[in-house]
Nucleic acid binder design. Sequence first.
DNA 1: AGCACGCCGACT
DNA 2: GTCGGCGTGCTC
Length: 727
Amino acid sequence: MSSENGQGGGGAAGEGAPPEQLALIRESVRQAKAPRAKPRTWRGAALAEELPVARVLVDKGVLHLDRYFDYAVPAELDADAQPGVRVRVRFGAGRGRVREGRREGGGLIDGFLIERLAASDYSGPLAALAQVVSPEPVLSQELLGLARAVADRYAGSLADVLQLAVPPRNARAEQRPSPAPLPPPGAPEAGSWARYERGGAFLDSLAAGGAPRAVWNALPGPEWSEALARAVAATLASGRGALVVVPDGRAAARVDAALTALLGEGRHALLTADAGPEKRYREWLAVRRGSVRAVVGTRAAMFAPVQDLGLVALWDDGDDSHSEQHAPQPHAREVLLLRAAQDKCGFLMGGWSCTVEGAQLVESGWARPLVAGREQVRRSAPLVRTVGDQDLARDEAARAARLPTLAWQTVREGLRHGPVLVQVPRRGYVPRMACAQCRAPARCRHCSGPLEARDGGAVGGSLWCGWCGREEGAWHCPECGSFRLRAQIVGARRTAEELGRAFPAVPVRTSGREQVLDTVPGTPALVVSTPGAEPVAEGGYAAALLLDGWAMLGRPDLRAGEDALRRWIAAAALVRPQGDGGTVVVVAEPTLRPVQALVRWDPVGHAVRELAERAELGFPPVSRMAAVSGTAEAVAAFLEAVELPREAEVLGPVPVPAGPAGRPRRAGAPPPGEQWERALIRVPPGRGAALAAALKAAQAARMARASRAPRGGEDVVRVRVDPPDIG
DNA sequence: AGCACGCCGACT
DNA sequence: GTCGGCGTGCTC
């Protein structure tokens, strides 16, 4: 069916007219209502002879607009208007004004050209493409397919995902040609992969063009980045590309260095947030154009358009920085899983610890475990000792000072041989308070927020609520009636001061969010750090002290145990092996499951047990959950309207506690002064896609209505698939 | 969001 | 008759 490319008639639209003016005269209302002999007519413009229709994704993240629109391709844009390019189109403005015989649409907005077609299935007349922004085809079929899958998985819009996947255009970066690609390197030696039972086989499979899938429990120590580099090199040797996603810039720099050491310059790109927009786009283009076949980067790199992908790899998937902050908040693990499935490429998910999701991938048979033997683990890991309540009770010194005797001894002994790491769970000087007797957290009597001591943690001073800011003058424990408080978590600086005074001859360094140290020398020093900011010590730490473990485990979160274990292991993995005197002391109850897993150095076993428990309780990731939040009326109306799959189960809604005052509001938290509710929706395994589809459909319907409502927005709900904080 | 279409009441 | 308020629906 070829469409009629009518020419002439619109003499006013001369060849010099801007393309958007080539849009058509709208048929009169009467004609539109009459049965249409010729379904559409383009007049006034010379259109492309072949495939005169462009299917366009309009770049507006609104759900009811999450579909394609067809535009006519003017002849002069024919050559550039190829699939994948950025375009600008007139959009909106109702049916358009008819002025001087030409229709003028609404404002110019951006979009992506999805495909060229011979005819449109739209029954009205088409507007013309206004502009091809640049001929660079930034949106490949693969990337489009991935973005579509991610949008579906997270009940989000394609436009939202594309905003995450395609960086903003930069003309200067685009003009510059990318370098010529280097030929594939030879296959690498096994290196540290030889320490794993199936490590060599995994590497061989990649080098031979295979697509092995593995969940890798990495041995403690610094070799992980080199191992990732070898997996990349093996994939490149097969003539394919590779992608590595890591949680932060420091980890990216390590893998970058390992890749440079193994392959030299020019074979890989580093995609991180701290490069400027031009450099970032230039690197991204080099990847898209096939000049560079390997990528390492932080979460935004999960969409990197690596050509002929042979391997996707993810390091430390339990780190919450793998969760994208922007809608629809996809997690790098899930994106790379979708990518591996779609591109039928290799998959490698590694870490010193193991998430429940990792255990699930192995248990389901989708991936194979890549682990070292117990003997190898024992040789690589430090000795782990615990200090529990019983020890503390017996320990007079511990009651006076904050540190138990074993901890003192370990630090003193460690400092004779090298640096000692002290991990404290929270930065800053402001401690949160708990009952000194029963350790129940001290909470605000008005809003249940955490009470904090503002004056440097002096017990007996005044208390303030961290959420609503009210002062608490006469606290007593609602659980046991005690009037005594203790600092639940003492900040890094205070601990550093205490330890510094105790070991005056030793330098104290701190690493935390405001200043992260990358490495420290192998000389004796106290290194006080918050989780995730631990510097790497040259030659490894002689010892590590993991403080306030019970506070870390006390969080009312599904992942509290897994998280605590992951953070402890991340610190302990920087300590020398037991054979070289490496010792770790954790102040936590030895009977608790994560503590036992640390002592035995068995994060996989821990994850497997957690997985079994989650399956039994119907928790994610075994079942899938979504959170719907908003005002009580909005949530109720949404739940009324949504057509959930049969098996779906609605939990709640329950009131959402007000977010901490003053601090920037997280998505899903109510705006100041508004009371929100949240419902959880749960579906059994295999019904996640149906749930997401139902949520998306209901949201689209409601958004369309909400935009019409007076003071629109009040009945809009927030939908989040895989909510991160399930108590 | 933004705009046009159309139905219905009020006014020249 | 015709003007215009606002409820509804569409945007190629």
